[in-house]
Design a protein around this nucleic acid. Structure first.
Lengths: 230, 230
DNA sequence: CAAAACCGCGAACGCTGTTAGCAGTTTACA
DNA sequence: TGTAAACTGCTAACAGCGTTCGCGGTTTTG
């Protein structure tokens, strides 16, 4: 049985996920493109034209190779997306040294996350899929837990808080990207009195600049009320 | 020019969106399936197997019709998703009568939204796409604005707050759905000291029950600080 | 030197959203 | 009333998608 050629990329016995798997085999010819090159090309495509532009054929084409060849390096498109996410999360490094209250530090990190999401608008969507955390993502989690060390709360609460902050940051990124996108044109406002009144009002000032900071500070106190341990 | 048959579903001159377009023409035979039937079938499919299960062929098949026939009622799959979203948002009706502070009322609405997202786990994803708001979505917006009437803030801030609350509710829904999904199995924790310490700790109590309420109250005060009008 | 392992490729499979053309049916108008 | 226009549903097809398979050529191991 089985003179069939096996593919290391979908070897379930030795390394089941993309993170525990050799980037290349030890026997054959050297790959013409490294894993990093592939992921970088995919990220460039996503930055330019969104996640939808990251098709196996497009990524392969950008590197001058055939679509099927990608499966020598990855076992699926999901793997590629996981790699893309982790690569970009790596841009959060290095993590700044401790300075100020833990709230201040967490807020600084959140700001850097926001900038990251604006640099790569597809990131929130890619993260929203169920994904297997890579080394950079784990490092990010670790750094967050480090910041939260002085907080007297259970780990479950801390995890929840970290996830929620990440989520809210992505909401801010999305709302900034979609500002003015939603259109109420050609809508009969007669049936919606409050909506009509809102549009009748003189255009108000744009949201305060410190909205991000204020929102996140409120969120943190709500999530990690320090007066109740565990 | 043009003895070509025209399709009312993609008539751009009379009604460009799915909301301003007759459900059926006035001339031909009665459609064997109404728009409501189609959307209901699609929602059922999504509820059962996720958004990915909502393919044109699957929806058509569930109703015993051919895939192409759907385009007599819709001009694209995006239209179908818009209709699905609006149909489900309609489940928020009727909106309860005013009772308690505006925070209390908003929180009640948020709870109903959370229940809605748990009933239809695909809803957040479907909403995340850029979508054209339908009548039920507009009614929801209107109700939110009505609740926020006593708040002294600009309309832009109120819109932002509504969007953010909706987003946070969807984050809670997602985190509840994905609880225990993330796996740190087979990860070498040596490089992540805080993560390792977190797992070494005895498992802490699950997050407080009033976490949702506490978080949203904090968020609302952060977003709509009543001491600063406009 | 032979065997095993690996790389890249082209072709194919089944799926997707979407379009075109073809009956057959119903309505509007002269 | 007759006829033309409009409408419905169907089959077939197109391009694109993720993925798999088997091939020839290359590199390493024993």
């Amino acid at each position: 049985m089985s003179g069939a050629p096996r593919n290391p990329a979908d070897d379930d016995s030795a390394g089941r996920s993309i993170w525990t798997r050799p980037q290349r085999g030890a026997r054959g010819p050297a790959p013409t493109h490294s894993r990093d090159e592939i992921v970088a090309a995919a990220v460039a495509l996503a930055d330019a034209d969104g996640l939808g532009a990251v098709s196996m054929r497009a990524v392969a084409g950008a590197l001058g190779m055939a679509a099927g060849s990608l499966y020598r390096h990855l076992s699926s498109r999901d793997d590629l997306l996981d790699l893309m996410v982790d690569r970009c999360v790596g841009e959060l490094r290095p993590y700044p040294a401790a300075d100020g209250t833990w709230q201040d530090q967490f807020l600084l990190l959140a700001r850097r996350q926001l900038a990251l999401y604006q640099r790569h608008p597809w990131l929130p969507d890619a993260i929203a899929r169920r994904m297997v955390p890579g080394p950079n993502t784990l490092a990010h989690f670790d750094a967050c837990l480090g910041l939260l060390q002085p907080v007297r709360a259970g780990v479950a609460a801390k995890f929840e808080a970290i996830a929620m902050v990440t989520g809210v940051v992505s909401l801010f990124a999305r709302s900034a990207a979609a500002a003015g996108t939603v259109t109420f044109d050609h809508v009969d406002l007669a049936a919606y009195p409050h909506l009509a009144a809102a549009f009748a009002e003189p255009p108000s000032a744009p949201p305060a600049e410190d909205l991000f900071e204020r929102t996140l500070r409120s969120l943190l106190t709500g999530l990690l009320a320090t007066d109740r341990p565990g």
